[in-house]
Design a protein around this nucleic acid. Structure first.
Lengths: 329, 329
DNA sequence: AAATTATATGAAACCGATTACACATCATAA
DNA sequence: TTATGATGTGTAATCGGTTTCATATAATTT
């Protein structure tokens, strides 16, 4: 593997000149530039990024921590972040944390040691004390789905509560008169907010009662069993709002298996907007702008890394109703 | 950020001794070790991986190139690889190539510059000439779903043809008497093999005719339209084998929309074994051992990196029938 | 008692880049 | 004509580690 020294020798200039040529800073004469270019071509020289990072303190690498890439929400997020990172010339390190504090802490340590330029964390379980290490090393962080105020940390969230309200509103508009809710883990802020939205929208209706809320865990299977339980309690329900799409898919399955027609008998709406196009009927959902979230996260991170003065502040993204067959007849 | 020099100074020993202590090689007296440990604790010192990599030529990082993490097959693969990598103390860089040669080439260059210790490539489009750069830098490669013989490259594949046969066989056993096939991109070797398996299994039956094969593209939508076309041509078909699960899901949807009962009227089977548990009925499939594939890929890569003498050779993994509701009544 | 061998340590080279600084040349302004 | 600034280049320090080699002492062998 050719090094900058090899290039400098063969080109008859100093390594400094080659470096200047490579980074396009400082003066380099036209002749020198041409010779260097030729030699680089000839040797098929590629700068060693590791050495570059050591000298320049930048790795052009970011860490992306997600709970579990198997959850279909996260590939979409990862993809949008990776695309954006790629445009900025950055590479992404993928870390699955399983919402496990120990794993999170370990990955944060690893990423610090690998000198990543920044980290995007999508985690329900991250705690302030985990981030202090990053703050100490002044490694920029963008936090998704979680708020934690600090000047080297930007938080991006969506309007979860409004989304919950929107879902109920839509179901009501479609003629539902008894709406159940499958809520996600109470440990997750955004999950609680979605449920809060549901409750607020139900407040004052004459049909609402607490037993219309089923407690689940954001999984298909969880949504399925929660729906079964709800049906046992309320055979006459005619609408369901699940706090994420996976649970909604599970609910849909439970309804179909118990011979409820969707959307004729019962209407179903989820939350997140992941593309579950294989479902029949297709699922209505309160969609997060996932790609925009990823892109914005990367933009914000770059801003923090470059210490631009117009650093992005915390943002709350709107959600939108995406009505499909599961609520329309 | 504390450096090894800070530690050595405060501990009253040389950096060499600290380095020996850190890497547990060479001699370090008990007293020295204790003092160093204390100082490290006190300074909260963490070795800088970049410097380590530069000196030691190892980055403890691997690259993972996949076509698109949005395709549900790849999160499973990525997850299993990441888990295995993590156990070995390695970190994973995620690269989406979109089966685009230019992107692949660019990522390979980037990964070389970042000095990854090895690369796992899952790509339909990779060509030998793309790998020569890696060979030149003697960067180990594990290739999935693609065979390319070389001593620094290990290929892992599955028994695609046998899987295709297995699918047909299963449908026949379940009583099907006219089986259609939705095949994937012909540019993909494993896709062609699955179709070859289908054809071989159909050979000699009295009902088979070429128009029972629909050509598609491995997507849900593609499977949907292919199924619609097949139904128009052969309203009497009673079984479908799709070359991957996404197309099978699309086919399922098309069948349901056209009021065909699955599995009573038509039985459907896919290929891959991705967990599409939200489908109703659940999809039978020819399952690849995805997690085992990922784990093995990582094991093989580590073997190549460490230059172990019992380097793993190319492997072909068996596939298994996973019968679910879509073929059982 | 002398010769080995095992244990322990530090100085300095090295990994492959960036960059501050010194110095030289040439063109332009005063 | 001289001062000044722009242009161009090389030397050497630096980033934060690892590793070779020389050296010294303690523990075993013979």
């Amino acid at each position: 593997m050719a090094t900058i020294k090899d290039v400098s020798k063969l080109a008859g200039v100093s390594v400094a000149t080659v470096s200047r040529y490579l980074n396009k800073n400082g003066y380099v004469s036209k002749e020198a530039a041409e010779t260097i270019a030729e030699v680089i071509e000839k040797l098929n020289y590629r700068p060693n990024n590791i050495a570059r990072s050591l000298a320049g303190m930048k790795t052009a690498t970011i860490g992306l921590m997600v709970p579990d890439i198997l959850n279909p929400f996260f590939p979409e997020l990862a993809r949008s972040i990776e695309d954006a990172a790629n445009e900025y010339g950055y590479t992404v390190m993928l870390c699955n944390t399983d919402n496990d504090s120990a794993k999170e802490q370990k990955y944060i340590d690893t990423l610090i040691q690998k000198q990543v330029d920044g980290i995007i964390i999508s985690s329900y379980t991250i705690k302030p004390e985990h981030l202090t290490g990053l703050q100490k090393q002044s490694i920029p962080v963008v936090l998704m789905d979680n708020v934690f105020s600090s000047d080297s940390i930007v938080s991006l969230t969506v309007e979860n509560r409004q989304g919950g309200e929107l879902a109920v509103q839509h179901l009501l508009e479609q003629g539902c008169s008894k709406i159940a809710h499958i809520c996600g883990p109470l440990s997750i802020t955004s999950s609680r907010d979605r449920t809060a939205g549901f409750e607020r929208a139900c407040r004052g209706t004459n049909w609402f009662m607490p037993s219309l809320i089923g407690y689940s865990d954001f999984t298909v299977k969880g949504g399925y069993t929660a729906m079964m339980d709800l049906l046992a309690l309320h055979p006459d329900l005619d609408g369901v709002f699940a706090s994420n799409d996976l649970m909604a898919a599970g609910a849909l399955k439970a309804l179909q298996e118990t011979n409820h027609k969707v959307p004729q008998d019962v209407k179903v709406i989820g939350f997140d907007g992941i593309g579950l196009e294989m479902l029949n009927p297709e699922l209505s959902t309160i969609a997060q702008p996932i790609f925009e979230l990823g892109k914005t996260a990367m933009d914000a991170l770059i801003g923090l890394i470059r210490k631009e003065n117009d650093i992005m502040t915390d943002q709350v993204f709107p959600v939108t109703l995406r009505a499909k067959q599961s609520t329309m007849n």
